[in-house]
Amino acid sequence: MKLIVGLGNPGPQYEQTRHNIGFKVIDELAHRLQTPLRHSKFNGMYAIVHHGNEKLILLKPLTYMNLSGESIQAMMRYYDVPIDHLLVIYDDLDLPVGKIRLRQKGSAGGHNGIKSTIAHLGTQEFKRIRVGIDRPEPDISVSNYVLSTFSKEEQKIMEEVISRCADSCEKWLEMSFIEVMNQFN
């Protein structure tokens, strides 16, 4: 069983923000796999789907970004998901808009959702897809920036990026994560 988690904040006011790119990828995967996120438990919305020989959980934690690890930890414990079967998707200020980076492990890099995940799981050793949202102009605070929406030009780029991220997740169901990294990085 594999668990793919998209980080974001719940509620319509956050739906289109930069910080919710993880939720957008999960929504795209759910659409492709024809499995709406109907279940509500573990402080999250999730779906379980069979894809080929693989059982897959798609999760959107509803704890708000800073507490994402609570939901992830509860889901992993309940379904006995091993750490090497976890993939977390989130926004990254250190990458330009439209750039993605797949990694097998790493630090939080200042991302509060990843800080929470590391704290609750007790390890940095989990797979992740970092999605570039770029840095704000010097006169804009980071918190205001990540809760802002993309420009029209950026939205077009992000639609392609969301699709590319979903592609990489589907490939992970068929091949090793290293092979997926080599293909998508």
Rank of each mutant, 00 (worst) to 15 (best):
Q34S: 12
M45I: 14
G52N: 15
M45H: 12
Q34K: 15
N53H: 08
R32E: 06
E28Y: 12
M45D: 11
G44K: 11
I48K: 07
G44F: 08
G52Y: 15
L56Q: 04
F42L: 12
L29E: 04
G52E: 03
L56F: 12
H31Y: 13
L29Y: 02
L29F: 04
K41H: 01
P36M: 03
Q34P: 05
G52H: 14
M45N: 07
H51A: 08
A30W: 02
L33C: 10
N43E: 07
K41D: 09
E54Q: 08
G52S: 10
D27S: 11
A30K: 02
N53F: 13
A47K: 04
M45E: 12
P36E: 06
K55E: 15
K55G: 05
A30T: 02
E28R: 15
G44S: 11
V49D: 03
F42I: 03
E28G: 08
L56N: 04
K41F: 00
T35K: 05
E54C: 04
E54L: 07
P36V: 03
E28T: 10
E28F: 11
G44C: 14
F42C: 03
Y46M: 05
I48Y: 07
H51M: 10
E28N: 11
D27R: 12
M45Y: 07
S40K: 04
F42S: 09
L29N: 02
V49H: 02
L33N: 05
T35E: 02
G52R: 15
M45S: 08
G52C: 13
V49G: 01
L29H: 03
K41I: 01
N53G: 13
A30C: 06
V49F: 03
E54F: 01
M45C: 12
H31Q: 05
L33P: 08
A47H: 01
H31F: 11
E54K: 03
N43W: 12
V49E: 10
G44T: 05
D27C: 09
K41V: 02
H31D: 04
N53R: 11
Q34H: 14
Y46W: 15
P36A: 08
N53S: 08
H39E: 08
L56T: 09
H31C: 03
E28A: 10
H31M: 01
H50W: 09
A47I: 02
M45Q: 13
H31P: 00
F42H: 08
G52K: 15
N53W: 14
H51T: 11
R32Q: 08
E28Q: 08
I48V: 12
L33E: 03
H50C: 07
A30V: 01
I48T: 12
I48H: 06
G52L: 10
R32L: 10
H51I: 13
M45V: 15
R32W: 13
M45L: 15
L37V: 00
R32H: 09
L29W: 03
R38Q: 08
N43I: 12
Y46A: 00
